[in-house]
Design a binder for these strands. Sequence first.
DNA 1: ACCTGAACACCGTTCAAGT
DNA 2: ACCTGAACACCGTTCAAGT
Lengths: 200, 200
Amino acid sequence: MTPTTDPHLRADARRNRDRLLAAAHEAFQRHGVSASLDDVAKTAHVGIGTLYRHFPTRDDLIAALVTADLERVAALADELATHDDAEVLGRWLGELVDHTASYRGLAEAVLAAGGDPTTRFGGACERLHTAGARLVRREQQRGTVRTDVDPHDVLDLANAIAWATDNTTDALRRRRLLRINIDGLRATSGADPLADPASP
Amino acid sequence: MTPTTDPHLRADARRNRDRLLAAAHEAFQRHGVSASLDDVAKTAHVGIGTLYRHFPTRDDLIAALVTADLERVAALADELATHDDAEVLGRWLGELVDHTASYRGLAEAVLAAGGDPTTRFGGACERLHTAGARLVRREQQRGTVRTDVDPHDVLDLANAIAWATDNTTDALRRRRLLRINIDGLRATSGADPLADPASP
DNA sequence: ACCTGAACACCGTTCAAGT
DNA sequence: ACCTGAACACCGTTCAAGT
């Protein structure tokens, strides 16, 4: 997908890398991120060893395909933080969830990576996570998001919604699930409804 | 776990079945529902063929372990539907999520089973789903839950939260995520906030 | 420096032989 | 009627040999 402009790479190695990425993108789109790596190598007309040379782990392959998109979504968070309308966070979460649901199993990979910065994929996830948390905190200061939620929780919920909807084509359903969560994030009475049986 | 009082089963077969269930419960608790079946058979001191004879698919094994619990949660939904306090749904969803997070990977198995009634596990999931949807609809009639949500969405969200938290011991985090969703389900102005930038 | 694919390891599933 | 485990199939990963 992303044009790989890595310098200092032998011509054939570069061509193989690009072929692998194209083949992986197609395989992931069809069968999800746990698609057979053997098939990926075969489709790319490349030995399986070449695949492992370029991408030692499956996560490295995933990272190579989605990092650019993750950075884009992270940059969007920073940009939206300068806007003042009430639905900034909702719109950003929509973008995030749409992206995470692009490959089946991607949300699971994100959860597994945790944000472990020692891996390429985990590092990319963490950059996104940081930018998202910053946006959430700004909304909390503006008063559009209740202050008793942890910014991490918001991102985890978005990821969970991506997981629940990543093998459906029903984009409306994804929106509905997200809408419930966004409304739940609205600034409300800080009182615990469990402790206060009387509705306002 | 559950005492299996299946009649008309040869004594040794019965004993093997019970051993397999005990071994599977421990393995699932330790490694999640995708634990090695070979290990389960070995722990049960039983040939691998015996495992497959009793439980032709992994889902059958999972079903045998959780069906009783699923029925219990389903029954609780019916019972809570006779109560009148505002937090019935919240409490029930708490029970549901706690149970679904009992084994790692169980939420994923529930999503995969979909509610396909041709399988034992899918059938059990569907019974639970039906009972839960009924409770949600009653709350919608009572006015504690907004009417523009699909009852299925509520159950899918609970499942997604179980997934996001099924490898953590932090029960508080699970509660926080659920709290956001429950508040999002509260009956509010039916107007789409996207179309109405002015807050109430 | 990079590529290749045979070889190895692991795990799930089946089925012929045994009680 | 039920149990057993060798045999098979599949897939991910490594590494010695080749260019």
